[in-house]
């Protein structure tokens, strides 16, 4: 399945509530995540998405 701009935007949108409530979920398992850890995880997710879009997104050679 091609990673279009629209699909990438949707994935980014849905990553926001996950990131915001990540500390709550971690809290269920007695893991205290600092805010900076959440910011880093979200940044890594966005970077991964960016790389995937470059590899498999619209206009990339793989997608073609």
């Amino acid at each position: 399945m091609k990673l279009t701009k629209a699909r990438a935007l949707i994935l980014i949108a849905f990553s926001v509530p996950v990131a915001i409530e990540l500390r709550t979920v971690a809290g269920f398992f007695n893991v205290e995540l600092p805010l900076i850890a959440v910011a880093v995880i979200e940044f890594l997710f966005l970077a991964l998405l960016f790389v995937l879009y470059g590899l498999y997104g619209e206009g990339s050679e793989s997608a073609a």
Partner: peptide, 17 residues
């Protein structure tokens, strides 16, 4: 239009949550 609806979703996630 697409950017607008997604911006609303993200903005509301921040504010409402």
């Amino acid at each position: 239009g697409l950017l607008q609806v997604i911006m609303w979703f993200v903005g509301m996630v921040f504010m409402s949550n």
